[in-house]
C-alpha cells in the first residue's frame, strides 16, 4: 500500500509529533507514505476571499499526486475537506474543471481526476482494515477513558466526504477501542473546537474550546484524541493558555490518534513525539499494559 502524503502548512510548522507518529504507525503497519515534493497550501485559507484561488490551489496539489500516480492521504481535517471538495467539484463540474485547467496551464499542469483523497484515519478503516490492525496490536490500554473529537472537517460536508455519519460518527471510536481504550460519551461531541476562528476572533474561538474542555472534564476523560492539527492546538497548547488567562485548570492530555495507536502497536513512546505535546502525556502511559 502506497500513498502520496500531504502534510499541509500547520503540521510541519508546529505539530511535528503528528507527522512523526503517523510515519511510525504507517511503518509498523507496512504502509508506504511518499512525501509530495513542493506541495503548497491546500487553499482552504483563501476559500473565503477567492473561490477560484482555493480551487486552483487544491488542484495544484492534486495534480502533483496525480503525477505520482498515487491516491493521497492527509492528516489535517482542514486540508481533508478542502482537497476532497475540490477533487469532487473538479471531477463533477466540467465548466469549473475547464476554468481551473486554463489557470493551471500557465504552469503546465492539468487536473485529470485520476485519484482519490482520504484522511489517514479513513484509509486505516477503508483500505487497510480494522481486523488487520487488530492482528498487529501488541499492547493494550487498561482503564483509559478517551474523549474522541472527530472534528467538523473530518465528517462534513458529508455529500462530498461520504465516509462516516456526520451526526453519529463511529469509525474513530472503533479505532480507539482497538487499543483497549474506551471512547466515552461526553456532551456536544460534534461541537466545533473553535480552531477556524482563531485568526478572526480569538475570544470566540477560545470560548468554544473552553466549553469543550469543560465537557471533557465533566465526563472524566483521561485524555482527548484528535485527528486534526487545529483541534489539537485548541485542546492542547490553548489549554495551557486558557489556564493562564482564565485560571481554569483542566490537565487533560490531548493526543493525536496515531500517538495512541502507535503505543498499542508497540512503538516506543520516545518515537511518537509524546514529549512534544503541550500538556504532559505521562499519565496516559500508566494505562498501557
Amino acid at each position: 500500500m502506497e500513498y502520496a502524503y500531504f502534510l499541509g502548512c500547520t503540521i510541519p510548522f508546529r505539530l511535528n509529533h503528528y507527522d512523526l507518529s503517523t510515519r511510525k504507525v504507517a511503518q509498523a503497519l507496512g504502509i508506504k507514505l511518499v512525501d509530495i515534493p513542493g506541495a503548497s497550501c491546500c487553499g482552504l485559507q483563501i476559500e473565503s476571499v477567492l473561490y477560484n484561488g482555493w480551487l486552483a490551489s487544491s488542484a495544484y496539489n492534486i495534480c502533483k499526486a496525480e503525477e505520482m500516480g498515487l491516491d493521497m492521504v492527509v492528516l489535517c481535517n482542514g486540508c481533508h475537506t478542502s482537497l476532497i471538495k475540490a477533487n469532487k467539484t473538479l471531477k463533477d463540474k466540467k465548466h469549473l474543471r475547464d476554468e481551473i485547467n486554463e489557470i493551471l496551464k500557465t504552469v503546465d499542469l492539468e487536473f485529470k481526476g485520476k485519484i482519490e483523497i482520504k484522511h489517514f484515519v479513513t484509509m486505516l478503516v477503508q483500505d487497510y482494515g480494522i481486523d488487520k490492525i487488530k492482528n498487529k496490536i501488541k499492547k493494550q490500554f487498561d482503564g483509559l477513558n478517551v474523549g474522541a473529537h472527530d472534528g467538523c472537517h473530518f465528517l462534513k460536508p458529508s455529500d462530498y466526504i461520504r465516509f462516516d455519519d456526520p451526526e453519529m460518527p463511529k469509525h474513530l471510536d472503533e479505532l480507539i477501542e482497538l487499543t483497549g481504550a474506551k471512547s466515552v460519551k461526553y456532551k456536544d461531541r460534534l461541537r466545533c473546537c473553535g480552531g477556524p476562528l482563531l485568526s478572526v476572533n480569538e475570544d470566540l474561538a477560545t470560548k468554544l474550546a473552553r466549553e469543550k474542555l469543560a465537557n471533557f472534564k465533566e465526563a472524566g476523560v483521561n485524555c482527548i484524541i484528535t485527528i486534526c492539527p487545529f483541534c489539537n492546538i485548541m485542546y492542547d497548547s490553548q489549554q495551557l493558555k486558557i489556564k493562564e488567562v482564565h485560571g481554569e485548570t483542566y490537565d487533560i492530555p490531548s493526543l493525536l490518534y496515531p500517538q495512541l495507536l502507535g503505543l498499542s502497536l508497540g512503538v516506543d513512546s520516545a518515537e511518537l513525539g509524546l514529549d512534544q505535546n503541550a500538556v504532559p502525556t505521562d499519565s496516559v502511559l500508566e494505562f498501557l499494559k
Binding site: G38, A39, S40, I46, N52, S57, E102, I103, T106, V107
Partner: peptide, 24 residues
C-alpha cells in the same frame, strides 16, 4: 532532530502564477 525529512520549498514562481491568474 526528530528524524523527519525536510519539507521541500514550494515552487513560489509557479504558485504565484496560478494564484495571479485566479485573481488573488
Amino acid at each position: 532532530d526528530l528524524g523527519l525529512p525536510a519539507v521541500e520549498p514550494v515552487d513560489i514562481e509557479k504558485m504565484k502564477k496560478v494564484l495571479k491568474k485566479a485573481g488573488l
